[in-house]
């Protein structure tokens, strides 16, 4: 039996990257800014999206792709705000992949400003998958503790933006914003950091302004 060694040097997630790049190109051509939200379960992604929807209305339009292992609950919450939402039920899978996003792609209206993708609640696996986003945001809620950036490094090193949420609970917790910021910036000096309470609405304005200025930059690039 003849043996042969074949040098491949291919990325294992190369096909995901390719699909993601196609999604990004198509959305950018339409002038849509896409934001991928990553966090552990219960960090406040959906509540934050509800606040963002209120803050963007009526001048800007948005839509949401919801990733969950089970149930339509999150997309129902978003639709209740008058926002189009598509639910991707992964049926056990711990992350979204670009090919799942591609499936709902044809339904996304062309005249949109922002497309948010709420990933499956998990601070580990979603970090490996590019979904075609322009901005990746990792959300760290204060009850999780200020030591998480270095414990889950990939979620923080691959993100553009860190949102420290549930700031209203800080007085009751040992969470130190400075510790979380320092840890996060040590592993990713480029992170933009926002402190929010999605429940109370604080800090959401600054976050929205960041998304709006990113949208302007995207459209200037297109023009």
């Amino acid at each position: 039996m003849e043996k042969k060694e074949v040098l491949v040097l291919e990325e294992l997630l190369g096909s995901n990257k390719k699909i993601a790049a196609e999604i990004r190109k198509k959305l950018e051509d339409k002038g849509i800014l896409t934001i991928n939200l990553l966090s552990s379960p219960g960090a406040g992604k959906t509540t934050l999206l509800e606040r963002i929807a209120e803050g963007l209305s009526p001048d800007y339009s948005m839509a949401v792709i919801e990733g969950d292992i089970e149930t339509e609950r999150d997309s129902e919450r978003i639709r209740a705000k008058g926002i189009p939402a598509w639910q991707i039920i992964t049926g056990g899978a711990c992350h979204l992949e670009a090919k799942m996003v591609a499936k709902v792609f044809s339904e996304i209206p062309a005249d949109l400003d922002f497309l948010f993708i709420e990933n499956v609640g998990n601070l580990v696996c979603p970090a490996s998958y590019d979904l075609g986003e322009n901005i990746r945001c990792v959300i760290l809620s204060t009850p999780e503790g200020d030591d998480k950036p270095k414990k889950y490094p990939q979620a923080f090193t691959t993100s553009d933006c860190l949102i420290i949420n549930k700031a209203d609970l800080i007085p009751a917790l040992p969470f130190k914003v400075e510790n979380a910021k320092r840890e996060a910036l040590e592993i990713n000096p480029k992170l933009k950091i926002f402190i929010t309470s999605a429940l109370k609405g604080s800090g959401v304005r600054e976050l929205i302004e960041y998304f709006q200025s990113s949208l302007r930059k995207l459209r200037q690039k297109n023009a």
Partner: peptide
């Protein structure tokens, strides 16, 4: 300095395959 470039350590690569042919 915090201006650093990553040279390696993020890869997830199939380097080579050994096969039996014929």
């Amino acid at each position: 300095s915090r201006e650093l470039e990553t040279l390696g350590g993020t890869e997830l690569l199939l380097e080579k395959i050994e096969m039996e042919v014929s």
